[in-house]
Simulated scan of single mutants.
Amino acid sequence: MYAEGALNLQNCSRIIRKAGLVDHYDIDIENCHYTLLAQMCGRINVPTPHIDHYIRNKKAVRTEIATLFKCSEDMAKEILIALIYGSNLTSYGVLSKLNLKRDEIDIKGSWIDKLYKEITRVTNNVVADYTEKTPGHFKIRNDAGMTKATKCENQKCVRKSKLLAHILHGAESLILQHMIRYLGENIVLLQHDGVTCKEPVDTDALSEHIAKMTGYRVQFDIEKLTLDLSRDDIGTFEPVNHEEIFQTYAA
Rank of each mutant, 00 (worst) to 15 (best):
T63M: 12
D52L: 03
L21E: 10
V94H: 00
T48E: 05
C157M: 13
C71P: 04
V188W: 07
T203L: 04
K101L: 05
T226G: 12
A66S: 15
C157I: 11
V46D: 04
I140D: 02
V126I: 15
N124Y: 07
S87W: 01
I15G: 00
K117P: 00
I107Y: 01
R17L: 02
I29V: 15
R141W: 00
E223A: 13
E132T: 14
A19T: 04
K77I: 03
K133V: 02
P200I: 07
V218A: 06
E153A: 14
L80T: 09
M213P: 00
K18S: 09
T123W: 03
N31D: 10
C71G: 02
Q191C: 14
A128H: 09
H209L: 00
C152I: 06
A211K: 14
I210G: 02
A6G: 11
N45I: 00
D143T: 03
H209V: 01
D193E: 13
R62F: 08
R102C: 03
K224Y: 06
L227I: 08
R14V: 09
T131R: 11
I27P: 00
Q191P: 01
D129M: 14
A38E: 08
G235S: 08
E73H: 02
L21T: 11
R56F: 05
E244R: 07
T63G: 10
E132D: 11
R217K: 12
D103N: 07
I140H: 01
E30S: 12
G93E: 03
K114H: 10
E30H: 10
T226I: 09
K108Y: 12
D74G: 07
K139T: 14
Y116W: 11
W111V: 11
C32L: 06
Q177F: 10
I107V: 15
H33G: 02
